[in-house]
């Protein structure tokens, strides 16, 4: 019987090891809500918080974490944005491939300047989007976001907006892949962002 050359054995072992590692990876699933089949994320063009207009399609090649909220939000939005800042930090060198976009549900108070200042408390690279109510309403509808204005108990605020609290994760091709419910740990969000960056 002909013997295989020594190099062939190493090649065979490395192929088997790679196959075994891939099998392990296939079993690992996303920790957020998964859409199947995924659909193209509805695009938008709005006023950006940093001077230039902002469009979702500007961020092809990056994973986008899209959140809806408002800068006067007393409870939910600060938690969501702090968590996303935590995710950004934990990604280290990969953070440049994640873009956080925060779309306002309160265009009356959230001017581009106000959004820039508010988002700056969490991360200078976060981007905000605002614009005409009709455009924002259409966008909320396209994502299934619910936002209702209610009177605030805090007289200074006058009103609050009760709104959807989830984060949408959009992949590098602009496909809406995952939905992160409010309160998910930063570690789990970072795990899913890394997986999206690998695809």
């Amino acid at each position: 019987m002909r013997r295989l050359p020594r190099g062939s054995w190493w090649a065979l072992v490395s192929v088997l090891l790679t196959a075994a590692m891939n099998v392990g990876c296939q079993g690992e699933s996303y920790r957020s809500g998964v859409f199947d089949p995924p659909r193209q994320a509805p695009d938008f063009e709005l006023e950006g918080s940093h001077g230039a207009p902002i469009a979702l399609s500007n961020y092809r090649g990056k994973v986008v974490a899209l959140a809806f909220g408002f800068s006067h939000c007393p409870r939910i939005c600060p938690v969501t944005l702090s968590r996303l800042a935590e995710v950004d930090k934990s990604l280290g060198g990969l953070a440049k491939d994640l873009q956080v976009v925060f779309v306002t549900v309160d265009p009356e108070r959230d001017t581009p300047g106000r959004l820039r200042e508010f988002l700056g408390f969490f991360d200078a690279d976060f981007r905000g989007a605002t614009g005409e109510s009709s455009k924002l309403d259409a966008l909320q509808h396209a994502y299934g976001v619910v936002a209702n204005r209610v009177l605030s108990e805090d007289k200074k605020l006058k009103y609050e907006v009760h709104h959807s609290t989830s984060i949408y994760l959009i992949d590098k091709q602009g496909v809406l892949r995952l939905l992160v419910p409010f309160g998910e740990p930063a570690e789990d969000i970072a795990h899913d962002v890394k997986r999206l960056l690998d695809t």
């Binding site: 089949p37 659909r39 994502y143 989830s166 789990d188």
Partner: peptide
């Protein structure tokens, strides 16, 4: 399309949501 979650699930689409924390949602 139907709203759940709150997100929109398109006709023919499914949405798979794992839960990790015991609570009421």
């Amino acid at each position: 399309p139907q709203i759940f979650g709150p997100t929109l699930i398109m006709p023919g689409q499914s949405f798979r949501l794992p839960f990790n924390v015991a609570s009421e949602y």
